[in-house]
Amino acid sequence: MRAELSKLASLWSVWLASAVAVLAPSGIALLNRGVPGPDRGYQELAFGVMGVIILGVVAVSSEYFTEGAESGGGRQITTSLTAVPSRLRFLAAKAAAVALVAALLAVVAATATMSFAAGSSWEPARLAGVVCYWTYTALLAFGVTVLTRHGVVPLVVLLVNTSLVSVTYLLSRFFAVAGYFPDLAGARMFVEPNDTKVEMAPIVGFLVMSGWVAALLAIAAVVFTRRDA
C-alpha cells in the first residue's frame, strides 16, 4: 500500500490528474459566481470527477505501459509482480491507494469549490456523497483499465461521457433503466436531476453505485489473478 502510494506520487500524470480534480470544479464555480442556484457547487463537483478518472486509469495503465523497443520493451507490471507475487494483494493495495488519493482529492476539491460557489450550502450529507462518488468513480476507472490493460480507450470513453456528451445521460432520456448506470445513480448522492424518468433517493443511488463498483472490482480481480501478466 505504501509502495503503491509512492508509485502514484512519482508519476507526473497523477499530479496532472490531481490538478484537474481540484482546479476544474473550483475554477468553474468561480466562473459561475454570478449565477446562484440550489445545486451551485455540487454541479461543478459532479463534473470534476474527470480528475479522479485520470487517476484511476493511469494507476493501472502505467503498469502496462511498454517501453520502446530501443530500450528493451519491458513493462513495469513484471517488476511489480516479482516484488509482490500475490496478485490479489497487489491489486488490493493498488485499489486502496487509488481510493485514498481520490477521497483526499474530493475533500480538497469540495472545500475549494464550495467556498467559491455563489450561494452554496454546505450540507454534510451531500458533501459525503461527493467524496463517495469521486472515490467510486476512480475505482470504476481503475477496474475497467485492469480489464483493458491499456489506458487510452477507458480514458477517452469515460472522460467524454462526463464532459462532452454523456452517453449514459442520453440513454436515460429514452430508457428509464439507464438511470441505473453507475455515474447517473451515483450522482443522486448529491444532485437531484429535474428531468429524470426514475425517482431515486440518495441512499438508493449509493447502493446502486456500490453494486457496480463491487461487481466490477470482483470481475477485475478474477481476470487479473487468472491471466498471464
Binding site: S6, S10, S13, E67, G72, R75, Q76, T78, T79
Partner: peptide, 21 residues
C-alpha cells in the same frame, strides 16, 4: 525485458517503491 520501470519516474523513485513493496 528492458528496465521494468515506468519512463516518467526517476531511477531512484523506481527503486524506492520496489523497496517499499
Amino acid at each position: 525485458d528492458g528496465s521494468g520501470a515506468h519512463r516518467s519516474r526517476t531511477g531512484r523513485a523506481h527503486l524506492r517503491w520496489v523497496a517499499r513493496a
